[in-house]
Amino acid sequence: MENLSLGLMLMAVGMITVFSILLIVIYLSKLLIAIVNKVAPEEVAVKKATATASAPTVIDPNTMAAITGAVNIVTGGKGKVMKVEKI
């Protein structure tokens, strides 16, 4: 009987603790999101910049070099990259 009441108490304490901790984690994460959005919202800025820059389909020179290199290896130097398009 004593053990059963211990089990009941553990059930109540355990479930309340798990809910409380996860609620704290959720609200703390929301706070964190708000702080990060205010202090360091750079990812959006980068995305916007690349979105406008990519309008005329400019391929990064490093990416172009990698693609050309891969084509050269696969075709044994016979293939040529004429055009690279973003799909």
Binding site: I33, N37, E43
Partner: peptide, 13 residues
Amino acid sequence: TEIKNLRVLKILF
């Protein structure tokens, strides 16, 4: 909730 910088958020989390 809108996340503007997921990378920094994932480091802080």
